[in-house]
Amino acid sequence: MNPRLTALTAKRILQQFRRDRRTIGLLMLVPMLLLTLLWWMFGDTPDPSTGQPLFDPLGAKIMGLFPMILMFIITSVSTLRERTSGTMERLMASPVRRGDVVMGYAVAFGLVAVVQGTLLVLYSVYVLQLDIQGSTPALVLIIVMDALLGTALGLAASSLARTEFQAVQMMPAVILPQLLIAGLFMPRDAMPRALELISNALPMSYSIDAINHLLAGDTGAIWAEVGILAAFIVGALLLGVLTLRRRTG
């Protein structure tokens, strides 16, 4: 990898992104709107065990899902578009290394993810009055990591797709199983043993575990999960690099 070429590539991707006002709007506003719907439903419903609004645990756990899905789709479609339009072939014939392309995307969309995640958490905490026991900056960190994970998984998954149609199908294939068994609907230790083991191998489980620590007011306990999430992000990026091919058939 070459830091100069990575930076140039990230800058180019942000230049492209900046022009797409509608996508920027959707990326920033859709998660807030979805969370507002959740607040509308559960903002006044007390949790039978704690007496607190059900929105607090539900909102905190679901929140990270929206940026993750959006960033996954945006990343996988953009990289696929590079492959189908011939620009990737051109890049692969240039001095750019495969790592520069992947890291360029990770850095550019990572910056977008930071803005998106921060806005979403601030909106939930200060407008929707989401009340978690743990610290708000820690919640921002986890939500931003969820968005980064979406980007990294999108980069890795797009190599398996040949068309944009297939790339979009990767989202339900990669993200929805995690949604179902990551501990959102049922605590992971209450699931059948086999499912619990599978969920151990899925990154989103650790995001929900970390949120559970925050809900319990135990901010100091999140670091193991944050470390695991970071390892998944790095792993997915490496997979993205390894599956990028200079030569094609």
């Binding site: 180019r12 230049q15 492209q16 022009r19 797409d20 339009s85 011939g86 620009t87 072939e89 051109r90």
Partner: peptide, 12 residues
């Protein structure tokens, strides 16, 4: 190398 189909970024 210039590919047959113009390969540059339409949104730049």
């Amino acid at each position: 190398y210039v590919t047959q189909a113009p390969s540059i970024y339409p949104d730049l």
